[in-house]
Computed example of a mutant assay.
Amino acid sequence: MNDRMLRAFVTCARTGSVTRTATELGYSAASISDQIRQLEVHTQKPLFRRTSGGMSLTEAGRRMVPVAHDILSRMDLLCRCEAKAGYGRRNRGNRSAPLHEVHHVRRSA
């Protein structure tokens, strides 16, 4: 699962259309369909009902929308924080610790 899959999912949930989602995100409709299909394989649940009138969420899809929004918001926040701290390509020698190391750091009380 990756952010591209989640962005395709939440955008399609909002627009109800693979074509509109593709236009909005700047990908082909086939790419959006593939991303959603891969997410459905990963979750092992159908997230959309596909009809000639567009895409509508299944119950599993409706439950997943707020979680996907939360994940994407946190990922966007993380990217903004790293950009402000200067952890971009220009400062390769000044990077933050890898996430697996940060996970093990204990906070002092």
Rank of each mutant, 00 (worst) to 15 (best):
V67M: 05
M55P: 01
R7N: 01
C81W: 02
G26L: 13
N91E: 04
A8I: 15
G93T: 01
R49P: 00
G26D: 02
D70S: 15
L72D: 05
N94M: 14
M1S: 07
H69R: 15
V102N: 08
I36G: 03
T43P: 06
R4Q: 15
C81V: 11
T21S: 11
M64E: 02
G86F: 12
S52R: 14
R80M: 11
L78E: 11
S108L: 12
A85E: 10
E101G: 09
T43I: 05
Q44K: 15
D3L: 03
L39M: 04
V67H: 11
R49H: 14
R62Y: 07
M55W: 02
M5R: 06
T51Q: 05
R14V: 07
T15I: 13
G53E: 12
E59M: 05
G53H: 08
L6V: 04
E101R: 07
M1C: 11
F9Y: 05
P46I: 00
D3M: 04
N94K: 07
T11K: 07
A30Y: 08
G93L: 12
C79K: 15
R90L: 10
G53M: 13
L6N: 03
S73C: 09
M1H: 14
L99H: 08
S52V: 01
T23L: 02
S56D: 09
G93H: 11
N91M: 06
C79V: 06
C12W: 00
C81A: 10
A85N: 06
Q35D: 14
E40F: 05
S17N: 10
D3F: 08
D70N: 13
L39H: 03
R90S: 11
R4L: 15
R50F: 00
D34R: 15
C79T: 09
A97H: 00
V67W: 05
H42R: 07
A13Y: 01
L72C: 07
R20D: 09
R63Y: 10
S108G: 06
R90D: 04
K84C: 04
R90I: 12
Y27E: 08
T19Q: 14
L47R: 00
L72T: 00
M75A: 12
A68Q: 02
R37G: 07
A85M: 13
R90W: 02
D76R: 06
C79A: 13
A97W: 04
T58E: 00
T51V: 05
S52A: 14
R106K: 11
F48S: 01
V18N: 00
C79F: 01
A60V: 02
R20S: 07
L47Y: 12
I32G: 02
Q35E: 08
E40T: 03
C79P: 09
Q35V: 07
L47A: 07
V10L: 10
R63P: 06
I32N: 00
G54D: 01
T15R: 14
A22G: 08
R7Q: 08
T11R: 10
R37N: 14
E82K: 13
V18M: 13
S73V: 03
E40D: 03
A22Q: 03
L47M: 10
E40M: 07
L39D: 00
T51M: 09
